[in-house]
Design a protein around this nucleic acid. Structure first.
Length: 331
DNA sequence: AACTTTGTCAACCGCGTAGCC
DNA sequence: TGGCTACGCGGTTGACAAAGT
């Protein structure tokens, strides 16, 4: 039993908008507003269009404050940073970029920024391989995986595993390529899925914690850095409930560099001052990110004690709901 | 010059959900 | 409280343009 269509698609015009239609819609909204009812608007405005189509046209194109193209480096970083933190929640990402629409940001990511990020990721990987070859031992699964390359991984905490198991449109369909693309923007945090992780496996893993986020579980930061980390407590979201029994580690009060927008998204704080990307805080935040990943790993693989076990679990476990109260800060 | 491939972006589709009755 | 309706969102499609052969 399908969903009833929002309008009779055979009797309304579809496809590209003409300048006349644009002007009709623009002048109607200018004079009357949307009236809170997009379904009725086309009839009132004299448009032979679906209400949904009118809404989309207005929001994505006709709104007076819309910016098109010309993304700045800073916008690039914000998009990548937020994508890294919350995944493909384009409306939230767009809300941080004045004049940008979710559709625009989404298109920009898919057509340009993702490639840019992929190139950056590749560059970082080569750089790391040249400088850290043989430093392994941190349990990447698979013999061919090499050292635990510190590439960033898409770290969206949503969607929930429960929704991920269904054919929900809310589930990010981030590919392994998307995941690797998240390396753009600075310090490495999350390790990539092992090469052996094929697309369908990545699809099963990514919705839980976005792709092998727990593959690298570095040692805790030295005391000095822990002390520094405390100074960032102001930016941390509200403390989560205690971890479930058997969790690898408890909550570390951690804040990934790419999660720096989360407090604001959650309405619990201001943006951190200055440009963290350009500061020396990246290593510190990486450590905090690592602790955060342990938290996430504990959510989904509470019985796993090592990164290798987590990867093994990721291969076999069907998506399951995480322990209540965890890993759902944004959902 | 003609054809093919690739890139871009506007628009559509369908699902989840909030709000109303 | 449950059903219905409309809205908002993210994924996908398709038309068009530009670049390549």
């Amino acid at each position: 039993m399908g969903r009833a269509p929002c309008c009779d698609k055979t009797s309304v015009k579809r496809g590209p908008w003409s300048p006349e239609e644009d002007e009709l819609l623009r002048s109607y909204v200018h004079n009357h507003g949307t009236g809170g009812n997009w379904i009725a608007l086309p009839h009132k405005a004299g448009l032979n269009r679906c209400g949904k189509s009118c809404r989309l046209r207005w929001l994505n194109y006709l709104r007076p404050d819309i910016k098109h193209g010309g993304y700045t480096e800073q916008e690039d970083r914000i998009i990548c940073s937020l994508y890294n933190s919350i995944g493909s929640r384009w409306s939230i990402i767009a809300s941080k970029l004045p004049g940008r629409t979710d559709n625009d940001v989404k298109n920009y990511w898919n057509t340009k920024l993702k490639k840019k990020a992929m190139a950056m990721h590749q560059h970082q990987q080569e750089y790391y391989n040249n400088h850290h070859h043989g430093s392994g031992g941190r349990g990447r699964r698979g013999a061919g995986a090499g050292a635990a390359t510190p590439q960033r991984q898409c770290a969206s905490m949503h969607p929930s595993p429960a929704s991920a198991s269904a054919a929900s449109s809310a589930v990010t369909t981030a590919s392994a390529g998307d995941a690797a693309a998240c390396s753009f923007g600075g310090g490495a945090m999350y390790s990539s899925p092992p090469p052996a992780l094929q697309a369908h496996q990545a699809a099963a893993v990514l919705p839980r914690y976005d792709g092998g986020a727990a593959a690298t579980l570095p040692a805790p930061p030295p005391p000095q850095q822990q002390q520094q980390a405390a100074s960032f407590a102001d930016f941390s979201p509200a403390p989560p409930p205690p971890p479930p029994a058997g969790a690898i580690n408890g909550w570390a009060g951690s804040l990934a560099i790419d999660d720096m927008f989360l407090p604001e998204l959650l309405g619990v704080g201001d943006f951190p001052p200055g440009d963290l990307f350009a500061t020396g805080f990246a290593p510190l935040l990486q450590d905090r990110a690592a602790a955060s990943l342990q938290e996430l790993a504990a959510c989904y693989f509470p019985n796993a004690q090592t990164a290798a076990e987590i990867w093994a679990a990721a291969d076999h476990v069907k998506p399951l709901p995480p322990p209540a109260g965890l890993c759902h800060s944004l959902t």
